[in-house]
């Protein structure tokens, strides 16, 4: 059976499959790619499409086993989703028209003097968020660093400090709700400003841990 050079569509699909295949599985991508050269021309496209599916399965396989070592490009989405909105909120708190910078120096003191205790407390929490909310821009930076340079958060102390800040602020918020009658945060805001950034930092710390390859992958890596 005569074999012909495959089409650009098939070439594109097999190229994508090779790129998407995890590094430790590269031999299998090469195998699928090599097999293409021995196929009849009319089946190369469907073969290449299948190879792309196979690569995607390999790419997503770790997610089925509770392994959170996800691909860096998937982590880019997580970074933007987990830290992006919180970074914008932090910017608003710190520099925006209603933020802590606006309340700087005399303005801040004036507002504090004229407000009832609960509002003073609330304002204090807002101002504190200018500091504790740093988890968001720092998380954004660290997340993007991981995506670009494959370097996760390996400084445990920094990780714990970043997590501790919003946890302390949450504790202060709970005290405010119980002790001073301030309005609790809306669940959606709590999720965006506290839960997602903390989850993102925890994930970055997890990715920063050294990993031992399972025996099968170690064999593959060793060739």
């Amino acid at each position: 059976m005569k074999t012909l050079r495959f089409s650009w569509r098939a070439s594109l699909l097999i190229w994508l499959a090779t790129r998407l295949m995890p590094r430790e599985r590269r031999e299998w991508a090469d195998a699928m790619n090599a097999e293409m050269h021995y196929l009849p021309h009319d089946v190369t496209f469907s073969w290449a499409a299948g190879c792309l599916v196979a690569a995607l399965k390999q790419r997503f396989a770790p997610m089925h086993t509770g392994n959170f070592r996800i691909n860096r490009w998937v982590f880019l989405l997580e970074t933007l989703g987990f830290f992006g909105p919180a970074t914008l909120a932090w910017w608003e708190f710190a520099f925006g028209p209603s933020g802590a910078a606006y309340f700087g120096s005399k303005m801040f003191a004036m507002h504090f003097q004229n407000l009832p205790l609960a509002d003073q407390y609330m304002l204090g929490l807002h101002a504190a968020h200018a500091v504790t909310g740093l988890i968001a821009p720092m998380g954004l930076f660290l997340g993007l660093r991981y995506v670009i340079r494959d370097r996760a958060l390996d400084n445990r102390l920094l990780g714990y400090a970043l997590i501790a800040a919003p946890v302390l602020q949450t504790t202060a918020g709970i005290i405010g709700v119980i002790g001073f009658g301030v309005e609790p945060l809306l669940p959606g805001i709590f999720l965006l400003l506290i839960v997602l950034p903390v989850a993102g930092i925890v994930h970055l710390m997890y990715l920063g841990k050294a990993v031992a390859l399972p025996p099968a992958d170690a064999r593959l890596a060793a060739g």
């Binding site: 599985r25 299998w28 195998a31 699928m32 097999e35 021995y38 196929l39 469907s46 073969w47 499409a49 299948g50 190879c51 792309l52 599916v53 196979a54 399965k57 390999q58 396989a61 399972p214 099968a216 992958d217 593959l220």
Partner: peptide, 26 residues
């Protein structure tokens, strides 16, 4: 080889290779 196995089993490459990989891993 892969194509022979694909023809013999009727499995497409997107199913065949993940199974081969799994068998190899085990």
């Amino acid at each position: 080889h892969g194509y022979e196995l694909s023809k013999g089993t009727g499995l497409v490459s997107g199913t065949l290779y993940p199974i081969l990989t799994r068998l190899s891993d085990r």
